[in-house]
Nucleic acid binder design. Structure first.
Lengths: 347, 347
DNA sequence: ATGAAAGCGCTAACAC
DNA sequence: GTGTTAGCGCTTTCAT
């Protein structure tokens, strides 16, 4: 059995109970509970009501409130994978904090990318009359707007509609790539390699573009021979060491922190050291890794928390935006010790 | 502005609208919507209702339903840190999947361990008349039962009340420690070291006990000189290499995967290789790390997903348990390549 | 300054 | 077979 002291099930204390106990009408109770400004309640009546509330352990029923007002305090968050990485957790966290700040509660659903689950999740949220829905993916990509979403207000988070017909908030990959590269340039490097991912994606395209922009701005010619593609994991980084060394680069911008971790490993096996023999920048700022590598990895952060928070603000109309706008959030540099000299914060 | 096509705000289609459109009473609509068995509705009426529902885009109002029935389909999940590690995400994921399976939706709140936020979060959930609350922490530890929780059914997840007066579900640290150690023993090692954490905790005590039990069962004398304490991070592992080597151990059980990662690093710097020179087992099964180390790390998994799912089952009374029982979930071994021979699954 | 009453969207007797 | 009606807990005019 599970019911313990559960006074809740036993004791559905309602406003009527409070009214009776205090010897007033339920209207009066409502007024004091909601601290209505322009409702003058006698001091004694107010006190009697307050006492009754405390004694009976009364809790207002938010659901009944919603029925009357027509507006609920729910915001739905549907994610395609809430546990694969710490990333989705950050999105939830940001969304939750921001929603909470405005008096909203988060209703979360995980769909594992399954369309049926998605339809069901969205349906469930719609039936609960959510104020709106945040639809998020665990890595930045294009996505279809799932069926049902358009029946309410919604914002895409860390994904966007290729048809450009939905408000979305995503990380600024280009600025991120520029920032990472600039860190290396500021530290004096001219021959800078990039280990990109093998899969076409906003991250692949955007970071490369940023890399090229930073190079161009510094008057360094872009050399395609310095750009390699590799699996976006430790293995990819490890396997790129040879090419990297052969390229004559003195610094490298890795597609993500995991790639950098593999690279550290490969470099060390050859007796090379970081940053002396090779300066390294990562991407993602995956704490467990970046902060604890030897030397700690300088990287660029993926702003997941901010993505979630911004999504809420967009949804609630707190942050202005044009209809169906693709809003972009900066990827800030995180300075640690894998580049020789302290670099300036670039953008 | 945020409202887009939002037909929702514009169009609160109710049961009454459907009834009018179909030319029947709202009771009839209710009956067909809920597919009541023993209610005989004419085929034509049923069809007219169905058509009207489709044409109008009617969605039942779950909140109104709740008001009538008295029971909501919400389950609250309050966490002290949903984003610090992937762990909390796993708990949410498990809880969400299981709740969903039984027709419940998860309401999540993050409190950052702040007591006020906790009170508020629990209060908010109570006002939304949740069926019950899961209270979880991101690492296994003792905790106070927050104010308000006792007003409803609740289960502690990954934490427990030292006063032993609350149902809780936690990982079986002792079995986990035994499993990890057994893996090493099965592979032929006799001189097995353990790098434990410096902080007293269920993990510290439990895993050590498991280690001792496995040793005892194998007839190996427990040697305190083989147990070191270190920071539960890469740095701790790295810094333990010297002691470890001096101890003459041929295998080591690390408090967690991060410690193992640091250890790998330190071992490699001395030109030692895994598992030939030193067999290693981790704990946690933190994917990003364990699966991608060289060689991939054999470890013992912390069952966060299962913790969340089990919490829901306990809360809903689906899994039997005694009142205020401390329920324990197994930590299964995850075999990779940091121990020489394939080991048996032990417990 | 406070109460009576209508109604939010829906379900569940109970009529007809 | 299908409609009527009385609430569920609450807010909100409108009286008094």
């Amino acid at each position: 059995m599970t019911s313990e002291t559960n006074q809740n099930t036993a004791h559905p204390v309602t406003m009527r109970d409070v009214a009776e106990a205090a010897g007033v009408s339920i209207a009066t109770v409502s007024l004091v509970v909601n601290e209505k400004k322009n409702a003058r309640i006698g001091d004694d009546a107010r006190k009697r009501v307050r006492d009754a509330i405390r004694d009976l352990g009364y809790r207002p029923n938010a659901l009944a409130k919603t029925l009357v007002s027509g507006h609920s305090k729910f915001i739905g968050l549907v994610a395609d994978a809430i546990a694969t990485t710490p990333f989705a957790g950050q999105i939830i966290h940001g969304a939750q904090d921001e929603a909470w700040k405005h008096g909203y509660v988060l209703l979360v659903a995980n769909t594992d990318g399954n369309a049926d689950a998605e339809r069901e999740a969205v349906g469930m949220m719609l039936e609960h009359k959510v104020r709106g829905i945040l639809y998020s993916t665990w890595y930045h990509r294009a996505t279809e707007v799932p069926a049902g979403l358009r029946e309410t207000d919604f914002v895409l988070v860390d994904c966007y509609s290729p048809d450009d017909d939905a408000t979305a908030v995503v990380p600024d990959e280009v600025q991120g790539g520029r920032t990472a590269t600039q860190l290396l340039i500021d530290s004096g490097h001219r021959r800078i390699a990039m280990i990109n991912t093998t899969t076409p994606s906003p991250a692949h395209e955007g970071r490369l573009l940023g890399y090229q922009q930073a190079l161009a701005a510094a008057g360094i010619a872009y050399d395609p021979a310095l750009v390699f593609d590799a699996l976006p994991e430790q293995e990819g980084g490890y396997d790129s060491v040879e090419q990297l060394l052969a390229s004559g680069a003195t610094a490298v911008f890795c597609h993500n922190d995991r790639v950098a971790m593999g690279l550290y490993d490969g470099l060390r096996r050859r007796g090379l050291s970081i940053p002396e023999d090779m300066a390294v920048v990562g991407f993602d700022n995956q704490e467990v890794i970046a902060a604890h590598l030897r030397p700690p990895l300088t990287t660029v952060a993926l702003p997941h928390y901010e993505l979630g928070a911004k999504g809420i603000r967009l949804l609630l109309g707190i942050d202005e935006h044009r209809p169906n706008q693709l809003v972009t959030v900066d990827c800030p540099p995180v300075l640690r010790s894998s580049i020789a000299e302290a670099a300036h914060i670039a953008s």
